[in-house]
Amino acid sequence: MEKELIEKCIKGERAAQELLYKTYSRKVKGICLRYARTVFEAEDILQESFIKIFTNLKKYNYSGPFEAWIRRIVLNTAIDFYKSNLYLENQVNIDETRENELSPSTIADNLSEQELLKLLSTLPDGYRVVFNLYAIEGFSHKEIGELLNISEGTSKSQLSKARNYIKSLLVQYNYIENVRGEE
């Protein structure tokens, strides 16, 4: 079924393309929102991703799940979108970024999707991309290094800084109360 749809899309049948778009666009938008600074940029990434998906569809070889193939294109598009900004905050000594301990109970778990997204969107581009790739997508530092063309160490330090940044925002927004006082 999916194969049939994909083949119609490759032939350029607009109705098939629209169906494929409708099938995956909500998921793609979800991914884009996590990587983007604003909903407008998310929309840019979404559109660019789908154009790439359709123009490269014949390269899909059915060896893995189609959704994973789509996801990979979206990730690459999002990375490209912010690539020029990824290297600005690289020079970080990992030792300096040791994290404060945070006891599990202190994070409010009633944070909504929207609040978390808002939080993500305030991170510097480099932190946000690495955090997404590591914490949400589940890539290793080695893989992230290859994806972003940065060293493993840089990926680690970016992740660490991202977490600290998020933590400080959580404190600032009063989602974590009195980090030190609790333990």
């Binding site: 666009s25 909500r26 979800g30 789908f50 945070l102 599990p104 909504s112 978390l116 993500l120």
Partner: peptide, 28 residues
């Protein structure tokens, strides 16, 4: 402890879906 933050974001945002803007398809 470090993973707490990761888990929070992954569980809430990992499978998040959202509607694209209505005009997006036409642009594509």
């Amino acid at each position: 402890e470090k993973n707490k933050i990761d888990d929070l974001f992954r569980s809430k945002l990992g499978d998040m879906e959202a509607d694209p803007m209505p005009s997006s398809w036409d642009k594509i």
